[in-house]
């Protein structure tokens, strides 16, 4: 319960911080919308129409007040309810995020455990090599390399999702293969290595030795002690991995011309569209906080003997 209150407080702190930073950004929505060709007169007219002449704290209080009634407000740039924009984009990001999460959730523990149990084996060395490469190649470059080789040269997969409606994505899942690969590759390796390290440490640890001396079979030692310990420790890395996927969405969506939440967030910041920016911040922060909360609980459940700090 205390942990949940703390989580709510964290979200509120993020919102206030985002709002303060948002108002400190140069210019406002009226400046952006009228752009280079706008005259001061036109910008003033728009500013008044958008209610941007109100003081900033009042606007924030207004927005927050309505938030508690479930009203996310309307976008300054489009005048449409914020929820509509989010709803349209969430589908695209989920189409990327769900396969990415599934991949990470299933493959990382599998690869990590195999490597950890057989240190120095071929899969283990392959994992280490892949992790090294993926850490030295920025995601952006990885994306361009994959597009150049698999799409432009080999013609195996679509190069971008340019011109596709959100609904088309699921009808033609081939479009998602490259974005999901770029999004997950590094996190998958990181998490697998974390699991591997945990498995190796647990396997050679004093407790495991003790259990073996008690005459337990190796299989039992691994399943009952090594794996829970290793996965418990990896749960927090998993939470960070989810945060990483949210952040990675910004880049991957731009690279492949997808119009999801990452793209929407960048656009909202560029437009100085604070109601929209705050809603995105709430969504991202809320997800991160919730995932961390769950991770803590899981870690605690898998390795209750350990003192875990949030």
């Amino acid at each position: 319960m205390r942990r949940c209150l703390l989580a709510l407080l964290q979200c509120l702190v993020v919102l206030v911080a985002v709002f303060v930073v948002g108002t400190r950004l140069p210019g406002d929505t009226a400046d952006v919308l009228r752009g280079e060709l706008g005259t001061p007169e036109q910008v003033e007219a728009l500013r008044a129409r958008l209610g941007l002449d109100e003081p900033a704290p009042a606007r924030f209080a207004h927005w927050l007040g309505r938030l508690f009634t479930g009203d996310l407000g309307t976008s300054l740039t489009t005048g449409v309810p914020v929820g509509d924009d989010l709803g349209r984009r969430a589908g695209v990001t989920l189409a990327l995020g769900v396969p990415a999460l599934l991949l990470v959730t299933v493959l990382a523990p599998l690869v990590g455990t195999v490597s950890g149990l057989r240190e120095g084996s071929r899969p283990d060395r392959a994992l280490n090599a892949a992790a090294l490469v993926l850490h030295s190649v920025p995601e952006f470059v990885l994306g361009l390399l994959l597009v150049a080789s698999l799409s432009l040269w080999a013609g195996l997969l679509p190069a971008t999702a340019v011109g596709m409606e959100p609904g088309d994505l699921l009808a033609r899942p081939a479009v998602l293969v490259l974005p999901v690969t770029v999004l997950t590759a590094r996190h998958l390796c990181d998490l697998a290595r974390q699991v591997r390290a945990g498995v190796a440490a647990q396997r050679h640890g004093a407790v495991a030795e003790h259990l073996r001396l008690l005459g337990l079979r190796e299989r039992t030692v691994v399943l009952r002690h090594v794996l829970p310990g290793a996965l418990g420790a990896a749960a927090q890395q998993y939470a960070r991995c989810v945060e990483g996927l949210l952040g990675g969405a910004v880049l991957v969506e731009a690279l492949f011309g997808l119009r999801g939440l990452g793209d929407g967030f960048v656009e909202a910041v560029q437009n100085r569209d604070l109601p929209l920016v705050q809603t995105y911040a709430l969504l991202f922060a809320g997800t991160a906080v919730a995932v961390n909360l769950v991770a803590d609980l899981v870690a605690h459940r898998l390795a209750p003997r350990r003192e875990l700090t949030a």
Binding site: V147, L152, V162, A254, L255, D263
Partner: peptide
């Protein structure tokens, strides 16, 4: 397609 590389790749492919 806001990213230049996305426009380029979409054209090349």
């Amino acid at each position: 397609a806001n990213e230049e590389s996305a426009r380029l790749n979409a054209l090349l492919s």
